[in-house]
Simulated assay, not measured.
Amino acid sequence: MSALGLGVAGMVPRFALATSDGTAGVLAFDGDSIVVAGRTLRVSRDGGAGWTEQEPPGQVLALATHRDRPGRFVAGLAEGGVGKSGDGGATWHIGSAGLPTGEVNAIAIGSREPDLIYAAIRGDGLYKSEDAGESWALAMDRPWLDEAERDPLTLVSVDLETGMGGIWIYAGTERGLTRVPDCFCRWQDVQPGNAMDALVAGDAPPPANPLPKGEPVMSLASSPSVPERLYAALASGIWTSADGGLVWKQVAEGTVSAIAVHPEDETYVAALMGGALKLSRDSGATWTETAAT
């Protein structure tokens, strides 16, 4: 066991989470339920002991929920468009008006506004919908990092006082973490101070202890109950920040493709690690592997 304490207790047969082409699934909490999606969609209402399967409207590349809309799933689709279900995945409607063609590979729902949805289109930009996914408009170009535009691999809306209007959109990319205030004025590194300070200062000091430089950020999660608590899934493991991303610490090692945090309990975390679903009740200090379906 590593010094980071990846204490996996109660080992049981693994839940097959990879899609048929070998790609990892995506993950979200819907209240107390855990939702895992890819080419299929599975929901567990008992902490991973039992699962029900639903048919998604296509291969799901991104998945988002909101604590004020129980049973609503918003899915970014490999075939293009954004799928929305209001009944826990039983039925779906696809909204694509105003979206360009292409994979929707990252999705976020506004932390304060559950009908505000953000979608990243691979090779294009960041789009937003103010009517729960029915119509879309371009909000922002892709982040410019290391002399090139980078696709967001994951998005999360974070309710922090330092953002303009109190909201930041964080994006994980192949070259690390970036964010933009919801005025969509400029992508910027996570840094001390508020959004206006950063815009006036231009190049600002880096965060005190950032995520590993240049490592892809595959998944991000923010706890609505404690929004400054962030979790990040990287190839090196799971990292967490207690201050909105200024200072990060690694809490688990191993290949991690997706992470989610319970909407009412910032210490309850789910992660897809090495092809298995694992749960932590102590902010990632120890982990339990779920049962197979």
Rank of each mutant, 00 (worst) to 15 (best):
F73W: 15
D115T: 15
F73K: 00
T52E: 14
P207L: 00
G7I: 04
E103V: 09
G50T: 15
S219M: 06
T240Q: 11
K278N: 06
T173Q: 03
A285Y: 10
V43R: 14
A9I: 07
P181M: 00
V60A: 03
I167F: 02
P212H: 10
W136C: 07
G165P: 04
Y268Q: 07
S44T: 15
V104Y: 10
L99C: 07
I169V: 15
T23N: 07
G166F: 05
V35G: 00
M218W: 14
G95W: 12
Q54R: 15
G47Y: 06
A139T: 01
A270D: 01
W239P: 02
S33H: 01
A208M: 09
A252H: 06
I121K: 01
S280F: 06
A260E: 04
Q54D: 06
S96G: 05
V156E: 14
D131C: 12
P263R: 05
R150P: 06
P227A: 03
D141T: 10
E103S: 08
Q54L: 03
G95S: 10
E103T: 11
G25S: 11
L153W: 07
L211M: 02
L230C: 08
G166A: 05
G214P: 12
D282L: 04
T154Q: 04
Y268G: 00
E289C: 00
G47L: 00
G245N: 08
I121Q: 00
T40Y: 10
R281Q: 14
S33Q: 05
E264F: 15
G123F: 12
R179G: 08
I167G: 01
E53Y: 06
A108L: 07
T173V: 06
I259N: 02
A171H: 13
H93A: 13
S283G: 14
M273N: 07
A120I: 00
P206L: 06
V36N: 00
L277H: 14
T293E: 08
R42G: 08
S129T: 04
I109N: 02
R150E: 13
T255C: 00
V261F: 12
L153K: 00
L41A: 13
S280N: 10
G7S: 08
Q191R: 15
K278F: 01
D203V: 09
D115K: 07
A139E: 01
E103Q: 15
V247H: 09
A139I: 04
F15M: 10
R150V: 11
L63S: 05
M218A: 13
Q59C: 01
T255W: 13
A271L: 03
M164I: 15
Q188K: 11
A18M: 01
W92Y: 13
S219G: 11
T240N: 04
G244F: 08
P181D: 15
A64Q: 08
A137H: 15
A75R: 03
A49R: 13
